[in-house]
């Protein structure tokens, strides 16, 4: 099968599930806003906003980039610092 045929098949299959997931995100953000109050200073809220930007900005490896965004950093001197 050509890659063009493959891509047509894939988008046909992924369209509805992806549409549903994007709608879920929209509805959840609406829900948070409807409750009122200010969530803009909540760490989780800021992380989610930045994650949405990553989705828009990254041309590839989006899942990996998103996971890195949600991760604590690693520093390689930890063993020496802890005397292990």
């Amino acid at each position: 099968m050509s890659s063009a045929a493959n891509s047509q098949q894939l988008i046909a299959r992924e369209y509805l599930p992806l549409r549903a997931k994007i709608l879920e995100i929209g509805a959840a953000l609406d829900r948070l806003e409807r409750v009122g109050g200010d969530v803009s200073q909540h760490d989780g809220w800021r992380q989610l906003q930045q994650a949405l930007e990553i989705l828009q900005r990254c041309p590839a490896d989006r899942a990996e980039q998103l996971l890195m965004h949600f991760s604590r950093p690693y520093q390689d001197r930890w063993r020496a610092e802890w005397g292990l």
């Binding site: 996971l67 991760s71 690693y74 390689d76 063993r79």
Partner: peptide, 18 residues
């Protein structure tokens, strides 16, 4: 889990490699 996975995995790989 979650936000600790990346850091913890790197620490584990470090200990294994050492």
């Amino acid at each position: 889990h979650l936000e600790d996975k990346y850091q913890g995995t790197r620490m584990i790989l470090q200990m294994l490699s050492d």
